[in-house]
Amino acid sequence: MNLFRFAGDILHLLSILVLLLKIHATKSCAGISLKTQELYLAVFITRYLDLFWNFHSLYNSVFKVVYIGTTSMIVWYMRRHRNVKLTYDRDHDTFRYLFLVAPCAVLSLLINARYNLFEILWTFSIYLEAVAILPQLVLLQRTKNVDNLTGNYVFLLGLYRAFYILNWVYRFATEPGYSAWLVWISGLIQTGLYLDFFYYYVQAWKQSKKLQLPS
């Protein structure tokens, strides 16, 4: 455990909490992609299946439970809450799950470190996490106006990924024999997806005006 990794995990948690509190406080989920949230829930469930038989640290176990719990709450709000579900932007959130899930499933069967069910599910979760933000980015692109909290959510998520990269660099430099190609490449792709958004977010912030994505 190093400071970069810790900062990454905290930023990840913060991003989820920003979203959850926004929904809770405004009773609205306008601008939020349910597809992305459900994909993240699938990522957490397939990755943290080992919660019940592998114990690494209390830190890891607590985070796993919290990530699954908070993301479930977001999905619950968007699907079930009587007021919130009415604000869901169904017509613009049309990204097809299958376009992301199917290639990740095939890839995890082809490229994995060990050929057993749980390792393949874990690998699937790594690939899926890399692209799970796409429906959210497409939704932002379609609706153009990004409200502050949704913008902050995507920004914090991107920052979390950036800190994970620093964490890998640090581990590579300090832990003899440490390498994790599969996670590195997926992580780089994932972080790359945020770069365009980051650019506009920082521009808007510098000019202290509302974030608006270009056509």
Binding site: R5, N54, H56, N60, F63, E119
Partner: peptide, 10 residues
Amino acid sequence: KMGDEIHDEL
């Protein structure tokens, strides 16, 4: 080795 199969990152 069992220990190797535990992924230590989140």
